[in-house]
Simulated scan of single mutants.
Amino acid sequence: MGVLPLQSHDSRGRLYIVGTGPGNLLQMTPKALKALGEADCVIGNGFYLDLVEPLLAGKEVIRSSMGREVDRAAKALALAEDRVVAMVSGGDAGVYGMASIVLEVAERSGTNVPIQVIPGITAAVSAAALLGSPLSGDYVTMSLSDLLTPWEEIERRLDLAFRMRVPVVLYNPRSRGRPHNLDTAIGIARRHLPDTTPVGVVRNAYREGEDRLVTTLGEFEDHFAFVDMHSIVFVGGEETRILRSETDGRGIITPRGYHRKYVY
């Protein structure tokens, strides 16, 4: 396993693990676009392949489903022995994405396939921009999916995160299979934060059906139906506040601290 410069014209196979960002082509990095352009074969979850479909003309496309990540990683590595392969992963491949499992499988198999991880805009960053500036300083990201992490451990981490009183971003907040995980997480938040704490939700960021919600911790339970697995939830910290604009409605800001140092 090695690292390959993106500009290399080596005739050997290679594997790019490409973070596609939120799925809007305008939000992809030039490096990610270049990697997909070079690929002979593109493999990934069908949902994320559909989002980059305009870039896949003339390429072999291999679709995989949720829960088949290990098989997908092994398949991509096998194909990359003598082909240029791109593994697509939504957001940033290294943040709740495919990069870690591909690298783990590569390490255990002893492959010599050159691999490069191409960064993408993770959901916390892309969705935060649609709310204003909720993550201006320190913040924590947490996933509410207990498919790979025991729920008891997630609860322990949530309690520690909310004790810090910094903004907390919740990935995978609510699914049909685990609709109550969000309820539990917000209950933990309310132990440590006042009900006036701002909460923001962005659904389908930069994709068809984009929508957002700005509310408070005390009122959020009335809006749980708004949240699904295509959403990301922002729970503010002790300095976070709702920002009101005549043109854009309500947004969220967490001041960086300039007010403590400068007069403006």
Rank of each mutant, 00 (worst) to 15 (best):
P30M: 03
V85Y: 10
E107N: 12
S109V: 00
V113C: 14
I121K: 06
L79R: 09
D71N: 09
F47M: 10
A93E: 00
V52H: 09
G97Y: 11
F47K: 12
G94Y: 05
V102Q: 01
V113N: 12
A57S: 15
S109G: 15
A35L: 02
A128V: 03
T29I: 08
Y96G: 05
G67S: 05
L49N: 09
A76G: 11
A93R: 01
L49Y: 09
G44L: 02
A78K: 12
Q116T: 14
G91Y: 05
V52Q: 00
L33H: 14
S109W: 11
G58I: 04
L33A: 07
T141E: 14
G94P: 04
A80Y: 07
A76W: 11
L79I: 10
E69G: 05
V105L: 13
L36A: 05
A124P: 06
L144W: 09
S64H: 15
I43V: 14
E38G: 06
L56R: 07
L77G: 08
G46K: 08
V84C: 13
E104S: 13
K31M: 11
M66L: 14
T29G: 10
D50L: 01
E53L: 04
E53K: 15
T122Q: 04
L36E: 10
A86Q: 05
Y48L: 08
N45A: 12
D92V: 00
Y48F: 15
S143Y: 13
M87A: 08
A80Q: 11
G91T: 04
G44W: 04
E107I: 00
P30H: 08
M142L: 14
A78H: 10
A127H: 10
S89F: 04
P134F: 01
A80G: 13
M87L: 15
F47E: 14
G110C: 01
G137H: 15
A129V: 02
A78L: 05
V105H: 09
V95M: 07
E69Q: 04
E60Y: 03
A127D: 06
K59M: 08
P134L: 00
A128H: 03
L77N: 05
G37N: 11
D82F: 02
S64N: 14
L77F: 07
A128K: 00
G46R: 12
